[in-house]
Amino acid sequence: MNLHLITSNADFFLRAARLSIFIFVMSALCSLAISLSFGSVATARNPVLRIVARSVIEFFRDIPQIVSVFFVFFGAPAFGLQLDPVEATIVSLSLWGGANGAEIVRGGINAVPKHQFESTRALGLSTLDTFVFVIAPQAIRPIIPAYAGLCTILLQSTSLGALIGATELLKSAQIVIERAAYFQGGMPGMTVYTFILCVYFLASTAMTRGTKRLEKIFGVSTRRKPASPSTQSSVPRE
């Protein structure tokens, strides 16, 4: 492979990688906010709120990501919004990721035994205190592995921005290939796309390993917590 093509465009690839990371971070943060809000509402006792939340979640989950990207980019002007390719990519990935993340959060909350909710009501805890101090610590363990997989998909999906003109990693590869083919001739696609493949592979692998470490940390803390004397002594007794 002609590695000179990669090294000579290192700065260009680095800028594209930074943009890909920016798109991923913003999409992940927005998805997390949507996931927590809609996932919690989807488990509410109010049937109206629960049905509305579930309907919104299912709607955005059932839309393919590529359709969502095109819809947001070309449909936003109809609602008076002018989004550039990067903004449209972030919005579309956030909606898709938030909907799938909300379903993960809903499943994690529903995995908590029902008697935990009944016990907190008997102790007079508020809804917020119940969620923060009782439900969330137990729900986070089943949520982490599934949400980590979702974040990996979001990282890989930043490449969809190339379809609407965002100069992220995949788009930068296309630009380099077109330049090289025009000025130097030949077919440099194999070299450049192999490089991009390796970058995505390494990034996804690093995220997977980091998530496993995070999962172990939360697993240890939640296993030790019930055995803590301070925790047991803090429970009110009748």
Rank of each mutant, 00 (worst) to 15 (best):
T222C: 09
T231P: 00
C30L: 15
Q138Y: 02
F24V: 02
A33K: 04
S8T: 12
N110C: 04
A42N: 04
Q116R: 06
G101M: 11
R141P: 02
M26Y: 01
F70K: 06
A111N: 08
G75A: 11
H115C: 07
G165V: 03
L93K: 06
A146M: 10
L170H: 02
L202V: 10
H4E: 14
F133P: 00
V134A: 13
F13S: 02
S233I: 12
A78K: 11
L202K: 00
T205F: 08
V220E: 15
P113M: 05
S159H: 03
Q138V: 03
P77R: 05
S119H: 02
N110F: 05
T211H: 10
I90R: 02
T127K: 14
S55W: 11
T7L: 14
R61G: 04
I6G: 03
L49N: 11
D129V: 07
N100V: 06
T208H: 11
A33D: 01
P137G: 11
L32K: 05
S20Y: 04
G39P: 01
F70D: 06
I144F: 12
G210L: 12
K225Y: 14
M1I: 06
I153D: 14
G75L: 07
M187I: 11
F59C: 07
I23F: 03
F117S: 08
A173P: 00
T231G: 13
R213I: 15
R18K: 05
A99L: 08
R223C: 09
I23T: 08
S94P: 03
Q116L: 06
F60V: 03
A181D: 00
P137F: 09
L3A: 13
V199W: 00
I90Q: 03
I21F: 10
L81E: 08
I217L: 15
S92P: 07
C151M: 15
T127Q: 15
D84K: 04
R50W: 10
L5G: 03
G98V: 09
C30S: 12
F12I: 00
E238S: 12
M26L: 14
I90K: 03
A181L: 00
S233H: 14
T130Y: 05
